[in-house]
Simulated assay, not measured.
Amino acid sequence: MSDDLASRLREQGLRLTPQRQLILRAVEELRHATPDEVLCHVREQVSSVNASTVYRTLEVLEELGLVRHTHLSDRAPTYHSTLEHEHVHVVCRRCQKVRSYGPELVAPLVAALAADGFTMDVGHLAVFGECTDCAPDPQTDAT
């Protein structure tokens, strides 16, 4: 990925720095991570990286199309690499577990919105609810 990162940065007149490489690698390794989680991961390797560097770099990487963000909680956005296939995020409100599903899960919704002249950003979509591990058991609640 560093060749792609380097070429995209050069196209924008920017340099490939060790911090940018570390931050992109952290997003790829963590798969879904907030800026604070990226910072902690990067600091395991280089303690001098600060939060503002992480936030600025994530913005640059997103502008370059190398990472995307979505909101998986009411906290900071969560970033993931664009190397992963496009996916819908499904989040359990109780245990916070995040599952990823292919875009075919929402294909009828995408098609309906497209028919109405709207293009949906599937990779930014997060659906909230309860997973089967956290949902109340209807048999025990019926008594």
Rank of each mutant, 00 (worst) to 15 (best):
R10F: 15
E29D: 15
E62V: 09
V54M: 01
L125A: 06
N50T: 04
G123A: 02
F118P: 06
V110R: 13
R10P: 04
F128E: 04
N50W: 01
Y101W: 09
G102C: 09
H41T: 02
E63H: 14
P18H: 02
R25I: 11
D4H: 10
G13I: 08
H69L: 08
P18L: 03
V67W: 08
Y79A: 04
P35S: 10
V38E: 10
S7P: 01
V38D: 09
E130V: 09
P35V: 09
E29R: 08
L9N: 07
R8K: 13
L24H: 03
D36S: 11
Y79R: 13
L66F: 01
E28M: 13
D133W: 05
A111W: 15
R25M: 07
H41N: 07
Y101S: 15
A107W: 02
L24E: 01
D116H: 03
V106N: 03
M1N: 11
S2R: 05
A111S: 15
F118R: 05
V38Y: 11
T78I: 03
P108Q: 12
M120W: 07
H85M: 12
L72R: 15
A126P: 00
R25N: 14
S52Y: 02
L64Q: 03
L30A: 12
E59Q: 14
L109N: 03
A114M: 10
V27P: 07
P138T: 02
S52A: 09
R56T: 09
L39F: 06
R31I: 09
P138H: 00
G65S: 06
T132K: 05
T78Q: 11
V60R: 04
L14H: 10
P77I: 06
S100C: 14
D121V: 06
E11H: 08
R25D: 07
A112V: 08
H69S: 11
A142T: 00
D141A: 04
A76P: 12
A76H: 11
L66P: 01
S2P: 04
H80K: 14
E44P: 09
H87G: 05
G117S: 03
F118H: 08
R56G: 13
L5P: 00
E130R: 14
H80W: 15
N50Y: 03
R31F: 02
C95L: 05
D137P: 00
P77E: 03
S73H: 01
N50I: 12
Q19V: 11
D121N: 11
A126R: 00
A142P: 01
G13M: 06
L5F: 00
R99F: 13
L109D: 02
V98W: 09
F118T: 08
G65E: 11
H69V: 07
V46S: 04
C40W: 04
H41V: 06
V127C: 02
A26E: 06
E59M: 08
D3F: 06
L83E: 15
P136N: 01
V42K: 06
E130S: 06
L14W: 08
D116C: 03
S100N: 11
G13T: 01
A115Y: 04
L83S: 13
V60W: 10
F118G: 05
V60N: 07
D74K: 15
E11T: 07
V91S: 09
D4F: 10
R8L: 12
R25S: 13
T143S: 12
R15F: 08
G129W: 00
L30P: 07
Q139S: 00
R68N: 12
F118I: 14
A111M: 13
E29F: 03
F128Q: 04
